[in-house]
């Protein structure tokens, strides 16, 4: 041992080097803590400011047009007539369609990735592919939708319309740009979100729950459908709601594919319009009055997404804390 060798060691020195923190240390500490506190407040104020600023700009239009604007379908700039019902309809309809498709694929993939269907390496490859789907910018999806997806859909859609034209979903002829193409691309875009959060939910199912099901003689799919999915249902519904939130706010793919015509129709092949694409297309050349109306539309969109997202977060938070206690 070193100290026994009689070498220079701290043990042979009685003096202490410990010094109280210098004034510089103290001032730095104070400033640094204050700074973090200030930016925490700034985060809150930023959100408040966003809502306040957009709300403030929308207020004159809200006063002038009232809630009637939400349910009117007239949009006539020259006569100052505005209504955003078709856009609200288009937003909700396209998002729900995308949710059905993206939800089905997303949850299926989440099951595929979590329930030991694949060797671990393949699992990672597929997981990365799905995550990369989310990385592609929406404007690129829009471009792809116009030049790849629409030509691809054309023959099938035409056939569906000519054979099943009586059915409301196929009641108009397919013009390419419209609800169907938009919702399809939208579903690809929300699939990764749903798949990722559902995977977390499925992984959180305790192993012993699964083992209990197998122990009672359930087949793999019986265990998945009757035990694992119900146990993870909270997290999965949260995933769906958050996916819906993403779909509601998505702009570019829709602006490029939905056709931007203020139509309210159940038909998948009809062109439509959404709140976000309305904003994207009209903001650049809006006059003051129109800007107010657009801010009103932005407020509506903001409100819808805020409610949906809060709901999703709430569902995930409540179900995951319960899961932790199990």
């Amino acid at each position: 041992m070193a100290a026994e060798n009689g070498e220079e060691s701290i043990l042979n020195h009685a003096e202490t080097l410990a010094a109280p923190p210098t004034p510089v240390d103290k001032i730095f500490d104070k400033c640094f803590r204050t700074l973090t506190f200030v930016f925490t407040w700034a985060t809150v104020l930023l959100l408040a400011f966003i809502v306040f600023r957009i709300g403030g700009q929308a207020l004159p239009a809200m006063k002038e047009y009232g809630p009637g604007l939400l349910f009117s379908s007239d949009w006539d700039v020259n006569n100052n007539q505005f209504g955003i019902w078709p856009q609200i309809w288009g937003t909700l309809y396209s998002s729900l369609l995308a949710l059905v498709l993206g939800g089905f694929f997303g949850i299926t993939i989440a099951i595929f990735l979590t329930q030991d269907f694949l060797p671990h390496k393949l699992e990672m490859v597929l997981k990365n592919i799905v995550e990369l789907l989310a990385a592609i910018p929406s404007v690129v999806y829009g471009l792809w939708g116009i030049y790849v997806l629409i030509p691809l859909l054309q023959p099938t859609a035409d056939k569906l319309h000519s054979s099943f034209g009586w059915f409301p979903l196929f009641s108009t002829s397919f013009s390419g740009f419209g609800m169907f193409s938009a919702a399809l691309v939208l579903s690809i875009m929300i699939l990764p979100t749903i798949a990722a959060i559902s995977q977390d939910a499925l992984r959180a199912v305790p192993r012993r729950t699964k083992e209990a099901a197998f122990g009672m003689g359930a087949t793999r799919w019986e265990a998945i459908l009757r035990v694992i999915l119900p146990t993870a249902s909270g997290g999965i519904s949260g995933a769906l709601v958050l996916g819906l939130g993403r779909a509601l706010g998505e702009t570019m793919a829709l602006a490029m594919l939905v056709g931007n015509s203020a139509t309210v129709s159940l038909s998948l092949f009809s062109p439509a319009s959404t709140l976000a694409s309305l904003l994207a297309l009209n903001f650049p050349e809006a006059d003051l009055n129109q800007t107010g109306v657009l801010m009103y539309a932005a407020c509506t969109l903001l409100l819808i997404t805020l409610v949906v997202n809060m709901l999703g977060t709430l569902i995930i938070n409540t179900t995951t804390t319960k899961g932790g206690e199990r």
Partner: peptide, 18 residues
């Protein structure tokens, strides 16, 4: 602040533009 940040992360990107 945590709640605000989570809310902002769900904000439609076009709202940031607005």
């Amino acid at each position: 602040a945590r709640f605000s940040a989570k809310t902002m992360s769900g904000l439609p990107s076009i709202i940031a533009g607005v």
